[in-house]
Design a protein around this nucleic acid. Structure first.
Lengths: 103, 103
DNA sequence: CGGGATCCTTAAAGATACTG
DNA sequence: CAGTATCTTTAAGGATCCCG
């Protein structure tokens, strides 16, 4: 049942920011662009494969921009797009609301 | 790895509202309390088992209140708590932000 | 250095049947 | 009417190895 793929904007949006690691990644990029390895070491517990996947999805959803430099060794930088930056205050309001859940 | 169970308030909150059906359930209860069967028929595609699970979690997280009446046949009503109602404008802002995702 | 490819584990979701 | 109980399916996440 429910073969149709329609999702309301809310469900879509929650899918985009709802991954286990995505909020953390977005927070990483809030203040400045960062390299892949930086994000990896700043988020304890995440594997590189998962980080890659999440970053790719964020790029595809236009929240994050990826810039690769043709150097050796390679350098890749990630930064928030305008759409991504718009999300920050919303995430803050969610976090504020969710504070009661944390002891 | 990552055995620790700490979650930031944001991750917690996203877990609470992030289920596939929870936003829809919350929207169902926005205007008025509703009975189990009402919610079930108003949300096409959801199974009663999943609806039960999601409602129980929402109750446990204090977003929804459950009231059972000792009648035959039984009647159970669900309504938003204050915490649940506080969430509505936040959900709206997320949906508004996520509109660009929908074609 | 920043990935991709592959395989594995687990939690969420779904289908179905039964019950106080 | 409003659920449980069971079983099956799916998808997210994770571990590990390989590569330009």
């Amino acid at each position: 049942m429910n073969k149709g793929n329609y999702k309301c904007p809310l469900t879509q949006a929650l899918g985009v920011i709802g991954g286990k690691w995505k909020p953390l990644i977005i927070y990483q990029l809030e203040k400045s662009k960062k390299r892949f390895g930086e994000i990896d070491t700043n988020i304890p517990g995440i594997s590189r494969k998962v980080l890659t996947t999440q970053l790719n999805e964020l790029v595809e959803d236009k929240l994050v921009e990826r810039t690769a430099y043709a150097e050796t060794p390679p350098r890749v930088e990630y930064s928030l797009t305008e759409k991504g930056k718009e999300l920050i205050p919303i995430l803050r309001s969610i976090a504020k609301w969710g504070n009661y859940l944390v002891q």
